[in-house]
């Protein structure tokens, strides 16, 4: 089997997902045996501007330059994998969309802001078609590998469309609400094997919401636990602000 030409690219992000991949250890060597890696800024200096079988995209689209660049990558790639929250759901970059763009520019660049024109943050699929998504901040490596093998097999990968709670209970974690901690697990898409809760953290909703989250019910639950709504909206917007672009666009 001919190894597919594969490149990793990054847009607005922390490059942490690339780091996850770069840090896979022996598994990375196995992956290298499957693909013909032609560009991956974090692990190699070579560049590639030819056609690609697989383009793996980290980061979100936040300015005109990025929009043009992702469109060009799309044009020369057979398969596009968005990976990491920034790419799949806009992620933390989406928080920008809660503010006026001029205000954002002022705050970050002050006087020089005219040299750095900015746009609303968008997830990759909100700009170009995407074949596969690996959610998470950072990506959960077992899921990344499942998606990669699916892409190599040429078959779809379905992100689970149910709450993190399903996996969290299977891991027999104590529910964080039993300890008085607000957790976004009940409305967040599973697929991470409740990675954060297993390790003593809580769910921040980095994988995006289930396709029909019951918002009213969630509010009722939070009221019962005396959690202020503003607090939770902020918490949800931390990763999921770009979701409203999906709703308006569809």
């Amino acid at each position: 089997m001919k190894r597919p030409k594969t490149a990793f690219f990054d847009f607005a992000c922390c490059e942490g997902c690339q780091l996850q991949v770069a840090n896979m250890g022996d598994t990375l060597l196995e992956v290298m045996g499957l693909i013909d890696l032609v560009e991956f800024r974090e692990v190699m200096s070579e560049k590639w501007d030819g056609d690609l079988d697989i383009a793996v995209i980290e980061g979100s689209i936040t300015d005109l330059h990025a929009t043009e660049r992702i469109k060009a990558i799309r044009k020369r790639s057979k398969v596009l994998i968005a990976y990491g929250s920034c790419a799949t759901i806009g992620g933390v970059n989406g928080m920008k969309n809660s503010f006026d763009l001029d205000e954002v520019g002022d705050c970050v660049y002050g006087e020089g802001r005219w040299f750095f024109p900015t746009e609303q943050t968008r997830a990759i699929h909100q700009v170009v078609p995407v074949e596969y998504a690996v959610n998470g901040c950072p990506v959960y490596i077992p899921e990344f590998l499942s998606v990669l093998t699916a892409a190599l097999q040429g078959i779809p990968y379905a992100v689970p469309d149910y709450a993190v709670c399903i996996e969290c209970r299977m891991n027999e974690n104590e529910c964080l609400y039993d300890r008085g901690i607000t957790c976004l697990g009940p409305v967040t898409r599973a697929g991470c094997n409740s990675w954060c809760v297993n390790n003593g953290n809580l769910c921040y909703g980095c994988r995006g919401m289930v396709s029909s989250p019951y918002v009213k019910g969630m509010k009722q639950v939070l009221e019962k636990h005396h959690v202020p709504i503003d607090f939770v909206v902020n918490k949800m917007d931390m990763y999921n602000k770009c979701r409203e672009l999906d709703r308006n666009g569809r």
């Binding site: 709450a163 709670c165 009213k216 009722q220």
Partner: peptide
């Protein structure tokens, strides 16, 4: 229906 979040906790336990 008004209350359930469909989180699946009930069936998992």
């Amino acid at each position: 229906d008004e209350r359930c979040l469909a989180c699946g906790n009930c069936t998992q336990v």
